[in-house]
């Protein structure tokens, strides 16, 4: 009962705060859209300039659209949790959440998941806008893509919990968080030979990214994947999520010992 109510109020809070920060919302969507458009047409004119093969250019640009969509989702999951902890510490609400009988980590995970639902909607809005603008349409099996994304999203939440925990102790982690957005680009590169199945299964969110590309670019369906592929996605999610929780918990204890919780 308590958990269901927490999910409900967390979703309401995320939605209402999001709607009330209208300027931030519009500028974020516009920023993501124009950043992509600039990169996309830059890449396209470069490809045409060097007289690249049209079909390989098309498939590269299609992959670019899908990769950008995944990058925005990863970015949002990552920043929402890590940045959210910093903001709560600034507002003094982190101390209130810490005193919740449900536990700080549970409240933050619910918050991350409810924010994720809203962020996914935004990412799809951005995706449809860029597909309409560029004329490169992916295989939009929205339900199947959502399933894959949600299954893998726990690994990203785990990763962001690690940084959220570190942010409690090392207050000047903000600049490192900004660098992380560029490191995340490396994770979404489509069809890179560097990502062997073994390597992929070890990198956070990468197994989901592979399945996403297979559906969005390769025209596959979720029933076409093997059990091993699903196990890889689930294990990747569980392991990173578990590590995230563990590190966050350790960092919380360290912050409490040093009197750092809530001091920004």
């Amino acid at each position: 009962m308590g958990m269901i109510y927490l999910i409900q109020v967390s979703f309401e809070k995320s939605l209402k705060e999001f709607i009330r920060y209208k300027f931030e919302m519009i500028s974020m969507i516009a920023g993501l859209y124009f950043l992509f458009i600039a990169m996309f047409f830059g890449a396209k004119s470069f490809g045409l300039g060097i007289e690249a093969n049209q079909s390989s250019l098309d498939s590269t640009l299609e992959g670019f659209v899908a990769g950008y969509f995944l990058w925005t989702i990863m970015l949002m999951i990552f920043f929402d949790t890590a940045q959210g902890v910093i903001e709560d510490a600034n507002k003094g609400t982190l101390e209130q959440i810490s005193m919740s009988g449900l536990g700080l980590n549970k409240v933050l995970i619910v918050k991350s998941l409810t924010n994720l639902l809203i962020n996914i909607v935004i990412c799809f809005v951005v995706l449809f806008s860029i597909m309409a603008t560029t004329g490169y349409w992916l295989n939009m099996k929205v339900g199947q893509l959502l399933f894959i994304l949600l299954l893998g999203s726990f690994s990203m939440i785990g990763l962001s919990m690690i940084f959220a925990g570190l942010a409690l102790i090392f207050k000047r982690i903000q600049s490192f968080l900004n660098i992380m957005q560029y490191l995340l680009i490396a994770l979404v590169l489509p069809g890179s030979s560097a990502f062997t199945p073994l390597v992929s299964s070890l990198i956070p969110f990468r197994p989901s990214i592979e399945l996403f590309y297979d559906v969005a670019l390769g025209g596959m369906n979720i029933i076409d994947f093997t059990i091993i592929q699903y196990v890889s996605v689930c294990l990747n999610s569980i392991v990173y999520f578990g590590i995230g929780l563990l590190v966050f918990d350790l960092c919380c204890k360290k912050a409490k010992r040093s009197g750092l919780l809530g001091q920004y």
Binding site: Y5, L6, Q8, V9, K16, E17, Y21, K91, T93
Partner: peptide, 21 residues
């Protein structure tokens, strides 16, 4: 408190994180 929420929304949220409902 969360300044972008109303008093009622704040109280609902803080009741929620306490496991009340």
């Amino acid at each position: 408190l969360y300044w972008r929420l109303t008093p009622k929304e704040n109280l609902k949220y803080f009741a929620g994180i306490r496991g009340l409902g």
